[in-house]
């Protein structure tokens, strides 16, 4: 090695020493920016494995995810649910920051695969069919929950998970909690908090809490006095036996 090569190496190392802390800070800022301050709660090992995988496909990562997603779409058309689940798992592993993939995966599992299992003509035993249906509900919920882990800043997946608890698993208490968390994300639309309160009203033991929240909404202004809010206030006032003096003077529904 000639002297000039040594000098060149020293310059690169010197620059490396100067830029490493800058990169370290920027990486932190990138994460903070993309997660809007929310912490990424992934196991480190899992993260490294995932990152190495992503690196190998750098640049082509999203394209590969798209291709697998299209395959999943084809598998869906052929009603191969196991394959759909497997492919969507790969797609979300490749592109964990893409909400569309998690959302589609959760929806396919909880709404389409479950129904297909329930009415599977090849399975005569109904008990088994019901069991399979519920399994798919849980697979869907799992997709949504993992999506939330990777994208704690986006409301869409909380909404999807809440809907699975509400419409599929009938767990209003959990649905209320999930909708509530979604309502606290940065870009959450107004209706997220109402979704949470509707569920709260149906969660045994938390009706009083729900009533307080509905009153809060009602009193926050004309724009929140929606027919469903008024209806629920009426129901809860009756159910909780609120004294007449404390009741809101609700408009006729």
């Amino acid at each position: 090695m000639k002297k000039v090569h040594l000098i060149a190496l020293l310059i690169v190392l010197g620059f490396g020493a100067a830029k490493a802390p800058v990169e370290q800070r920027l990486t932190g800022e990138h994460r903070a920016a993309f997660f809007h301050g929310a912490k990424l709660s992934l196991d480190l090992r899992q993260q490294i494995g995932q990152m190495a995988f992503l690196a190998a496909l750098s640049g082509f990562r999203s394209v590969v995810a798209d291709l697998l997603f299209i395959q999943a779409h084809t598998a869906w058309e052929h009603v191969e649910w196991g394959r759909v689940a497997l492919l969507l798992n790969q797609v979300t592993a490749l592109e964990p920051r893409n909400v569309l993939y998690w959302d589609t995966a959760a929806w396919h599992m909880a709404w389409n695969a479950s129904v297909a299992a329930r009415y599977d003509k090849k399975e005569p035993r109904e008990a088994l069919r019901i069991k399979r249906e519920r399994e798919y509900f849980h697979v869907g919920a799992d997709f949504a929950a993992r999506g939330i882990q990777n994208n704690p800043d986006r409301y869409n997946l909380y909404e999807r998970l809440g809907m699975i608890y509400r419409d599929k698993l009938g767990d209003h208490c959990k649905a209320a909690d999930v909708f509530e968390r979604g309502a606290h994300t940065v870009k959450a639309p107004d209706y997220e908090k109402r979704l949470a309160v509707y569920e709260l009203a149906q969660c045994p033991g938390r009706e009083r809490e729900a009533y307080a929240r509905f009153r809060e909404l009602y009193e926050s202004g004309e724009h929140e006095r929606l027919p469903s809010v008024i209806k629920w206030l009426g129901i809860l006032q009756e159910k909780l036996n609120i004294p007449a003096s404390e009741r809101l003077n609700l408009p006729p529904n």
């Binding site: 490396g16 020493a17 490493a20 990169e23 990486t27 993309f34 592109e95 893409n98 909400v99």
Partner: peptide, 23 residues
């Protein structure tokens, strides 16, 4: 860390397409 550049920092595209705006 010293010899190689951190290229992941320049991989903004995936996040942007996924709908995560950059400041």
């Amino acid at each position: 860390a010293l010899l190689f550049p951190d290229l992941q920092l320049f991989n903004l595209v995936d996040d942007i397409v996924a709908g995560n705006a950059i400041q």
